[in-house]
Structure formats: structure tokens, C-alpha cells
């Protein structure tokens, strides 16, 4: 269509989400909180963002979803979704983008569901709005989705309320809702933090499975380097709004350059399972 810089286009031809030197500031006091985050994400690939609370990882995700909290604004850089800069979108355009191109799941799934409505109806609502499907078709597709996120007995779950489901099941329902409109990018912001480890592994496996089957691009955000390491091709380590380390997962794990990354790795090697499970392959 347009002939804007063919050179740049060729290098990121496949990137479905690219973030360029993203800067976010708190307009209340004029302080910059995120100091330049950049990454490219191709379909079927996963990028991980690691950092403690207050490192700016959640703000970065929220900027990509167009849901920055009040006072906060993107003050520099660009976020391109499917080759289109989305930082300056109007609210109505954002509504069209969210769900159908980019979607997200967060920590504490219970707070994202209405306790007085059946969970199936809430997923079906997304399909009815986003895909303009009829009542019957929405129900059928919802049950398919619930099956796709590995919920046993999706018909039963469809008619249940949020309080009847465990944390892991709720997160599956929310993943189903998030992928209902067939987005190309899914952001999982601390989506497994509050769950038991075995359930966390189930959810991570599910995300990997969805990625491999449908070519979904994943952004995985966590405070735990090991969680991110399991699934991601590329890792960004964020500290106080600054990217202190960025590179292929293997590279970051084996040759960490920044002191903070070394601390994150040391935590696992000294106190985690890695103490007893020596890597069998390369050292």
C-alpha cells in the first residue's frame, strides 16, 4: 500500500508486535518511569519480560494494550501492531484493536470475572461482540474454546460461577476469553504468579501449546526468571524502568552481563531446584 521506508519494513517484515524505544512518563510529576524498551515479536514466538514490582514491566504491557493508568502517558518511541503505530490511537480504535489483535491475561483471575454471571456466558459475550455471532453459535464456539484450554467437561464449566472454580481453572477461562476473538498477540502479565507450581506449569504448558498450534505471539511477564526461561526465545530484564539485559534466552542464562541478572540466576542456583538438578546438556 504505502511506500514508507521499505528498508525498515524488510527487517521486521514478520514482526506482529514491535516496540521501539518506548518511554512512559508519569504526567503528575513529569518523571519518566520507563526509559526506552525495544523488542520485536514474530508470530509463534515468545518474548519474556522479567523484573520486580515497580520495574515498569506492567506499564510497558499496559501501553501496548492502550490501558495506561491515569497520569501515565507514552512520551517517546512507538508501538507497532501489525506494522501500524498504535500509540496515538483514539479510544474507539483501541476498542476495535483489543481482543481481536492484541489481548491479555493478568494475575488474580477471579477479579476479572463477574461473580453473578455464569463464566461461559462471559466468554460467549466476547464472541458475540467481537465476532458478531448469534447466541447459539457463540455458545458452541465458547464450549470449543473451553475445550481448547484443556478444561475437563467444558459444558459443565460453561454453566458454573467464578466461585465454583479453582484459580487454575479461572485462569484457563480467562485465557479462553482472551483468545476468543483470535488475537495475534497475547500478553500474560504475572498470569501464573498466584497459582500453585503444578498449576502454573499447566498454564505455561497451555500457553506454549496455543502458541505452537495457532502461531499466537506471546509476551510473558514475570518476576521469576525461571518462569520466563521455560517458554521464551528472547528475554528482557527490566530494572527501575531500564532494560539492563536483553538477548536470546540461552545467552542471558549462560552469559549474563549485568549484575542484577546474575543475582536472579544465583537465586535459583543457590536456593532453587537447580542446586540439585545439574544441567545435562551444555554448560
Amino acid at each position: 500500500m504505502s511506500t514508507v521506508s521499505t528498508l525498515a519494513e524488510s527487517t521486521v517484515a514478520q514482526a506482529v508486535l514491535s516496540v521501539r524505544d518506548l518511554r512512559i512518563s508519569d504526567q503528575a510529576n513529569g518523571r519518566e518511569i520507563v526509559h526506552g524498551v525495544s523488542f520485536d515479536l514474530a508470530p509463534g514466538r515468545t518474548v519474556g519480560i522479567v523484573g520486580e514490582s515497580g520495574s515498569g514491566k506492567t506499564l510497558t504491557c499496559r501501553a501496548a494494550l492502550g490501558i495506561l493508568p491515569v497520569h501515565f502517558e507514552v512520551t517517546g518511541g512507538a508501538i507497532e501492531l501489525d506494522g501500524r503505530d498504535i500509540t496515538g490511537l483514539a479510544p474507539a480504535e483501541w476498542t476495535a484493536q483489543r481482543g481481536s489483535t492484541i489481548s491479555a491475561v493478568f494475575q488474580d483471575p477471579a477479579s476479572y470475572l463477574n461473580p453473578s454471571l455464569r463464566v461461559g456466558a462471559q466468554v460467549a459475550e466476547v464472541i458475540r461482540v467481537k465476532k458478531r455471532a448469534g447466541r447459539r453459535a457463540a455458545r458452541r464456539q465458547t464450549i470449543e474454546l473451553l475445550r481448547a484450554v484443556h478444561l475437563r467437561d467444558p459444558e459443565l464449566v460453561y454453566g458454573q460461577y467464578a466461585y465454583e472454580l479453582s484459580g487454575g481453572m479461572l485462569q484457563r477461562v480467562l485465557i479462553a476469553a482472551a483468545i476468543a476473538a483470535g488475537p495475534r498477540v497475547l500478553i500474560a502479565d504475572e498470569a501464573t504468579t498466584a497459582l500453585d507450581v503444578t498449576v502454573q506449569a499447566e498454564i505455561l504448558d497451555l500457553l506454549a501449546d496455543l502458541r505452537d498450534r495457532t502461531g499466537l505471539a506471546l509476551v510473558l511477564v514475570s518476576h521469576d526468571l525461571a518462569v520466563v526461561a521455560q517458554l521464551c526465545d528472547e528475554v528482557l530484564v527490566l530494572r527501575q524502568g531500564e532494560v539492563v539485559e536483553q538477548g536470546p534466552t540461552r545467552e542471558v542464562l549462560h552469559h549474563p552481563r549485568h549484575e542484577y541478572t546474575r543475582l536472579l540466576i544465583a537465586e535459583h542456583e543457590q536456593y532453587g531446584l537447580d542446586r540439585f538438578l545439574a544441567p545435562e546438556e551444555d554448560v
Binding site: 507450581v197 502454573q200 506449569a201 525461571a226 518462569v227 521455560q230 535459583h268 542456583e269 537447580d274 538438578l277
Partner: peptide
């Protein structure tokens, strides 16, 4: 399952 589920750096 617990051992296989725990996040480790070398999975």
C-alpha cells in the same frame, strides 16, 4: 510432577 513443574533455569 512437582519436580518437573518447578520453574528451573534448565528445563
Amino acid at each position: 510432577l512437582l519436580v518437573r513443574s518447578a520453574p528451573t533455569l534448565h528445563s
